[in-house]
Every structure is written in structure tokens, then in C-alpha cells.
């Protein structure tokens, strides 16, 4: 239920946040609250305490070149930022609806690590790096090493996700969300992909899917089969070697698998002749 008697510690600066995080490792991090409040209302969260980061200095802002995104940036900020990849801006527009986009943060989406998190495959596809910080120091973790298991991440109990860094891209990012309706939709399948071709040969390829396994994951078999050769849409079925979809209340394993293959085939088909 929404009422909670748990203490709420509020950090105004990054230094305070790191200290509070070290002092209260049991505290649930609270940013925009768009996941936390839903869990509370559904009686699915036992929170002994909250560490409120909303408004905390030092975690905001998108760099002018679009390469660094503060963890507390909201989807509303992302969708308007001209330097960000179009795929990322499109993703921002699919999150919840306007109200959720105004509160929900990029860092929250990543740290919450829902298998269906709308943005997660994009970070994998973009080869993004996450900056994690604690009183012990700073470190960078590649997005592909961050998601360890169902809602488990590489964040240590005393760490906070500070920002996301996007490398310089030669190729194109692609995003597709399959969520059945156009707003307030939770992904049934979500695809983030990146390709760089030269003279009809795939030089770089990263294909990542969400909502088809306990973690967002790279489709390594498909990537390996395609890199170094031409785009071959007919190999889309290789996706089944990496994904592990399930039946649940939202959809079926069969649907998720079939859709993952279909949308990949269509995307690969669109790349021919690029």
C-alpha cells in the first residue's frame, strides 16, 4: 500500500548521496518514483528505508554532444535533446506516457533492471558505459556487463549510478518496442540494435533484446554469423539461440520468440544496400 512508515533520507548533493548510500545500504533508491510507487501500491516492495535522489545535484544534465547523460535525466529531457541518437529519443517517447516521462529517469530504468525495461537493449546496442560511484571511488562498467540476473545488477550496495556514456558511433542505432498499445505500454519485446556497414559488409553489429529473458541480452549467435559478411535477414532465426522467453500474464513465450525473430528479419532486410 502507498503509506509507508520507512524513513526517507534525502540527498541534495552527490557527496551526501554517497555518504547516505554507505550509511544505509538497505535503503531503496528513489528517483522519479515511477517504479517504486507502483511496487509499493501493489504490496510488492519491503523497503526498510528510502534514499531520495530526486533533485540531487551532480546527477543531472546531458552533455552538449549527447555523449554523457546524467542518471537523473528524465525521459522528457531525453526526447527533446537534439544531440542524442534518434533511436534513443524515440525510445524516450515510448516510456509510459507524458506524466511518467516527466518523472521517470534514465538511471532509474537502468538500476531497476526490469527485463522489460524500455531503454535497456539500447544501452547494450550502443555499447554504453555506466559510471558507478561510491565513497570508495568511481568505476565504469560496460552495459553488457551490468545486468547480471533477474533484477540483479553490478551495482554494489554502496554504489550509485551517476551517468551513462555513449561512445562515438560510425553506424546507426535502431529501436523498436512491441508493447501492444501506444501509451502506458509495458514491452512484450523490445529491440535495440546497432550496425556499421562498409561496402556491403557488416563491420560492427550489436543486437540486443529485452523482455525475452531474465535480463536484457545481446544476441551473440546472430552477431557472430553476420559480422564480416553481407546482411542476411534469413539468419534472424539465430536469435532463438540466445533468448529464453517465458509465458506470463502479458504474453506468451511463443509470441515473444516469434516477434523477436520477425522484427529482426524486417530490420535486417531494411539494411540491404546500405
Amino acid at each position: 500500500m502507498l503509506a509507508s512508515n520507512a524513513p526517507v533520507y534525502t540527498a541534495k548533493t552527490l557527496a551526501q548521496a554517497l555518504q547516505l548510500r554507505a550509511d544505509h545500504p538497505e535503503a531503496v533508491l528513489l528517483a522519479g518514483g515511477t517504479d517504486v510507487m507502483v511496487f509499493l501500491e501493489a504490496d510488492r516492495l519491503e523497503a526498510p528505508a528510502f534514499l531520495n535522489l530526486w533533485g540531487c545535484e551532480g546527477l543531472h544534465g546531458i552533455s552538449e554532444d549527447g555523449r554523457k547523460i546524467g542518471a537523473l535525466c528524465t525521459w522528457a529531457e531525453l526526447k527533446e535533446h537534439p544531440a542524442l541518437p534518434m533511436a534513443l529519443r524515440a525510445c524516450a517517447r515510448t516510456v509510459g506516457a507524458a506524466q511518467i516521462q516527466a518523472r521517470g529517469t534514465v538511471g532509474g530504468n537502468i538500476a531497476n533492471a526490469s527485463p522489460a525495461g524500455d531503454s535497456l537493449p539500447l544501452w547494450l546496442a550502443a555499447d554504453a558505459r555506466f559510471t558507478l560511484q561510491s565513497l570508495r571511488g568511481r568505476r565504469e562498467v560496460a552495459a553488457s556487463d551490468f545486468f547480471l540476473g533477474y533484477r540483479k545488477t553490478a551495482l554494489a550496495a554502496d554504489e550509485i549510478l551517476v551517468d551513462i556514456q555513449l561512445p562515438v558511433q560510425k553506424g546507426e542505432l535502431y529501436y523498436k518496442k512491441v508493447g501492444t498499445r501506444l501509451a502506458q505500454a509495458i514491452s512484450k519485446v523490445v529491440l535495440g540494435a546497432y550496425v556499421h556497414q562498409e561496402g556491403g559488409v557488416v563491420r560492427e553489429l550489436r543486437v540486443a533484446l529485452g523482455a525475452v529473458a531474465p535480463v536484457p541480452l545481446r544476441c551473440r549467435a546472430l552477431e557472430e554469423a553476420l559480422v564480416g559478411g553481407p546482411v542476411r535477414p534469413e539468419l534472424a532465426a539465430l536469435v532463438h539461440q540466445d533468448i529464453r522467453p517465458i509465458d506470463d500474464v502479458r504474453s506468451s513465450a511463443h509470441y515473444r520468440a516469434k516477434v523477436a525473430e520477425n522484427i529482426l528479419r524486417t530490420w535486417l532486410g531494411s539494411l540491404r544496400g546500405c
Binding site: A90, C91, R93, T94, Y174, Y175, K176, K177, G179, L182, L191, I263, T266, W267, S270
Partner: peptide, 9 residues
């Protein structure tokens, strides 16, 4: 086209 719809035939 709706955001996030990507390429669809």
C-alpha cells in the same frame, strides 16, 4: 508513425 514502431510493413 508512432514512436518506437521502427520499421514495419
Amino acid at each position: 508513425p508512432p514512436p518506437g514502431a521502427g520499421i514495419a510493413h
